[in-house]
Design a protein around this nucleic acid. Structure first.
Lengths: 262, 262
DNA sequence: CGACCGTTTGATAGTGCTCAATTCAAGTGG
DNA sequence: CCACTTGAATTGAGCACTATCAAACGGTCG
């Protein structure tokens, strides 16, 4: 199921992913960037690119940017200039309805791309908020298009990323349009675990970086309902929950919920 | 609100849009294609392109394809080779859940693009079904990428289309995640009318090309609920409904529903 | 004309929301 | 260091909304 998500323990070890940040540079500075040495290169933009292409991509991504917890990387309505690849930390993206009420459209962790919705109309139609102190790679979109002119493989990679976003949202629509509360939360947890596992984290333990309310907003549920579903899963012995800490005891049990009720 | 939709009367005149098809060619044949002479060129792919660029695009789109009512243009799982621009008629796109149960992800009318979800993984992740006898322009994606190499404006146009799809789905998520049944249907009707108006059709009258069940699938509601909401709008004097024929009496009244309830 | 599909409408049940109170964790300031 | 504050999460009770089951109607097309 194409959902989005949070962050978690590295295997059963330390809680924060500080080990993923190989160096700390002065606040707000622009550290030298190399996609070659980034341990997300296998699943980030560089995926499948040749060495020379990777070099040129690195030269493009000259800037990283730090975003403190609660701060916005960009906001709806602002001019669109760049895409952003999450390097460390977690973000939520939210769209605002006419009445000012927000809805979370995704959670984004290391290697995830943000900002694609801004290409149309050259302004962001959503906001990206850091759920913890985070760092992103800044990818100027104009230069990205220039670069892709004479690098077909790279151009195609860009198209695949945009298409993946579309597929992901199709799945989100399927979830919002046809699943019950328990199935929504089960799908959410399974998606989360899957994405974390792909990044080398534990496949049975995770730390939620977002509130129950944010989960509910993403799943189309109220925060009380999310809390109740967590409690139900605990009662059924499927998971263990201590606030933001979640341990998956029976992944198959969660999987089964997706197929119950139609 | 970025929804999707059906088809309708041309102003208050004839019901079908046969006048939009300037010539009829033999069944299954590949009629000569010219974006220049297509009356959708202002809002289709060609939007904003210069004359020379338009010529090269036309040469790319050498084939049109007819799809009979109820038939599939493509199905989930099939190999992805081309994008499709609706020329006449209406389509629905549907994704299938693991349990075989479907969900409509969009309705597509003249000038709308379909198939973008197939770029990722090179296979279609949804199906496109014609809701009436229709015709599409076939756009081979590989050639489209080739063409965009040396035509920056064209490349950017492609990116904007993909981004627009993402924005549209964000709005669909907002609808599915936070609106009540009446607001969903009101948003659906308003989106429909807006899209039809942009294409030169009446701004207050339309013909639904899809069933109540398909509308419900798209809006995350059961067909009975859709029917009841129609009846409620009629009672309130907002619209007139005679099966598939809908007349919008008070657009502002529908608009107001979007803002009621929080 | 009859069969069938789509639509409408009614009665009832269930799911998730609303409102409200309580617990818990993590600050903050005296 | 503890009292206080604040924000998040849990839990309960009642209700609103939508789904479900069922029946009847209507339009279309063989």
């Amino acid at each position: 199921m194409g959902l989005e998500s949070l962050d978690i323990n590295k295997n059963s070890g330390t809680r924060y992913q500080s080990q993923m940040v190989s160096f700390q540079s002065p606040r707000g500075a622009a550290p030298k960037v190399s996609c070659n040495s980034c341990n997300m290169r296998e699943i980030c933009i560089p995926m499948g690119l040749k060495h020379e292409e990777l070099e040129r991509l690195s030269s493009l991504i000259a800037v990283r940017k730090r975003v403190k917890k609660g701060a916005a990387l960009y906001r709806g309505g602002e001019e669109f200039t760049s895409l952003y690849a999450v390097r460390t930390g977690v973000f939520k993206t939210v769209v605002s309805a006419a009445d000012g009420h927000d809805q979370v459209t995704g959670f984004h962790m290391a290697s995830d791309m943000m900002g694609l919705d801004g290409v149309h109309n050259h302004q962001h139609s959503s906001s990206a908020i850091a759920l913890e102190d985070s760092e992103v790679c800044v990818v100027p979109f104009g230069q990205l298009e220039d670069l892709s002119h004479d690098m077909p493989a790279f151009q195609h990679q860009l198209h695949r990323m945009m298409s993946r976003e579309i597929v992901r949202e199709h799945n989100a629509m399927l979830l919002l349009g046809s699943m019950r509360a328990d199935a929504r939360l089960a799908a959410f947890l399974l998606d989360l675990i899957q994405r974390l596992t792909r990044r080398g984290y534990s496949s049975h333990q995770l730390v939620l970086r977002m509130t129950r309310e944010e989960i509910g907003s993403y799943l189309g549920l109220k925060l009380e309902t999310v809390s109740r579903m967590f409690s139900k899963f605990v009662e059924d012995g499927l998971i263990e929950v201590k606030l933001r800490d979640v341990r998956i005891l029976k992944p198959d049990g969660l999987e089964a919920i997706l197929h119950t009720h139609h």
